[in-house]
């Protein structure tokens, strides 16, 4: 399984890519394999400010559902339209198919994101 070094990860199998003031978030290769064939993604909080660790939406696969949580406090400004149309693309290319775009807070005293190595260690347990 692949865990790109330039991404950050959460314990909830989400990856986060920090770009200037934005972050893109998706689910990891491990996450999509655990879920199996993804059929729908529901993000009810577009344009809403959500606190860290708050529920932000869910991914529905044929046999399972994965809840997604905010990696830090911020506003969800975009949901990937391609991903909404074809959620199955997440299975094919989990690191390319971002799910949401979040505005990253500038002052954040509590960085709880994992590095690629930390995440790898977590899922190898």
């Amino acid at each position: 399984m692949i865990y790109p070094q330039h991404l950050c990860y959460t314990t909830g199998h989400q990856w986060v890519s920090l770009e200037a003031q934005y972050a893109f978030m998706g689910i990891t290769d491990f996450g999509q394999r655990e879920l199996g064939h993804i059929v729908a993604v529901d993000i009810p909080y577009l344009n809403k400010t959500l606190e860290r660790n708050k529920f932000l939406g869910s991914i529905e696969a044929v046999h399972a559902v994965l809840d997604l949580f905010m990696p830090f406090s911020g506003v969800i400004t975009e949901i990937n339209p391609d991903m909404l149309k074809y959620p199955g693309l997440i299975n094919r290319d989990p690191y390319d198919m971002w799910i949401i775009k979040i505005l990253v807070p500038l002052i954040d005293n509590e960085n709880l994101l994992l590095t690629a190595d930390e995440y790898h260690a977590l899922v190898s347990q």
Binding site: E19, A20, Q21, P105, L106, I107, N109
Partner: peptide, 27 residues
């Protein structure tokens, strides 16, 4: 723009470590 934000985050990190009061800036 990417470099501007890298610089901003770096400055914030150094200043918070010094204990400066940066208020509620986001830029």
């Amino acid at each position: 723009i990417e470099k501007l934000w890298k610089n901003t985050r770096y400055a914030v990190q150094l200043m918070l470590a010094e204990g400066f009061d940066l208020g509620i800036t986001e830029s």
